[in-house]
Amino acid sequence: MSNIETLIKTLVEKHGKTRNSLMPVLQGIVKEEHFLSEEAMIAVAKELDLSAADVYGTASFYTFLDTVPRGKNIIRICKTISCHMKGKDEIIEALEDVLKIKVGETTHDKKFTLLTANCLGWCHKGPVMLVNDEVFPEINQQKAVEIIEGIAKASK
């Protein structure tokens, strides 16, 4: 059994074999693997006796359940109007510059993926950046770069 199949078996044992377990199982895989591979979605469908299309339909609905490979750390910059007016474009520019990638891409060392996100609910403290599960409000170019460099150092 491959690593991913073992992981899924464990998750299904934990959450149960019903359709209701689909979301927590998918979230569990993303937590470990950072994305849902074709192989992973098929294994989930088999375990829960669902069609593969059904699993893909659910996975592709949620932005936070990625179906393409992602880096270890996912940076999301809020792109909605308040953050836009507070300068999210400059922040993106600064991060693209320091990470040497464009929005939607992953760094060569697979450490970072840079994405934009719809409203994160922090309009009063924009612009806002989300790194994995952690929110960084009221950032500027310098702060954003420092945060990312900090994470890069910590994970060395």
Partner: peptide
């Protein structure tokens, strides 16, 4: 495909203006 045929070859994928009726991947 789901209710009458239990096949579910088709599903709703993605959302918003990207939403479409599609197959696995």
């Amino acid at each position: 495909c789901d209710e009458l045929q239990s096949v579910s070859a088709l599903a709703v994928v993605k959302k918003g203006d990207h939403q479409k009726i599609s197959t696995f991947m």
